[in-house]
Amino acid sequence: MALDSEFFAKYPFLPQSKEYVVSKGLELTPDFVEAGFNRARGAIVDGKISQFARGVSLAYDREIASYSACRMMVSRLDSAYFSNRLAIAESKRASAYLEREKDPEVILVAQSMGVDARPDGQAFQVGMADYLRYTPRDVHYKLVNTRLLNGMVKGLTKEKLVRIIEEAVKKRVMSGLGAKGEYPKLVQEYAKKLSETLPKIEQANLNIPMENYPPCIKALLSRLAISENLPHTARVALAIYLVRAGLDNDKITKLFSTAPDYNEGTTRYQIEYIRKKEYSMPSCATMDSWGICVATCRCFNPLKFNPRIHGRYAEASMKSADETRPRESSG
């Protein structure tokens, strides 16, 4: 198997590709920066990065460098929306290449990503923890339906392994984005141009003014607005709150439309389900155990939050230094 510049162009996020850039002394020429901008725009606006010309070795270095330039621009913007869009597009692009690779190359990419993948006869096997980390929550991916033996999920098809690598790539691309650094002037200019593609987030017309929402709900809404991938529990809590706060299904669906994996039908179904089942709002203690309580506002339940009573406690606790000493228990 050839670890050549064509391979690095296909998988520029691999550590080996970074080593190649360093050892070859690739510099960011204006041409490369422009390629980086096109890559970023493709990812963010169209959700798709175009494939590079195969068999033209000159194009390979341009492709590899464009990945670095693109990352710099998105990092410079420090926005979860851009980071998410880029990570998703990069991972889909990598999958498209992986699907056409021979088995040893697929395994090499997986292992270079830190995924414990190995051949298993004609099929593949992946370490159980990595399997859980990178597989979608789908019934046919459920651990209970796999051939799990001695910590390895065996008998995986290439299709499933590629799906696992795709998720690992997404997380790899995401990590480190938004890190502050000194960027070349040209990169900064292109970053500014890129920022103009940010869609305007429409404020849903709310019955309860949003300023009266508790800090935890505000935090969830702003995380959602920047396309952060909220965990299931956070989505449920937010949806219950919004239902209880009197928003109709259309408005709630619209608020969820910025989720990176948004699907209108699914979202609508789940909101309707929550409304029908009349779920009660999780208490502050439950919100806290889910890791989505952000302030000690003493309201006991987000629905009971009253800015005039609890607002100042919330503010004080969000400012205060961390409580690091134990509270002694009395006997």
Binding site: D288, S289, G291, I292, C293, V294, A295, T296, S317, D322, E323, T324, R325, P326, R327
Partner: peptide, 12 residues
């Protein structure tokens, strides 16, 4: 920080 509150400040 096992004693910090709320939970998010403990840094899991």
């Amino acid at each position: 920080l096992p004693a910090a509150r709320p939970m998010v400040k403990k840094n899991w």
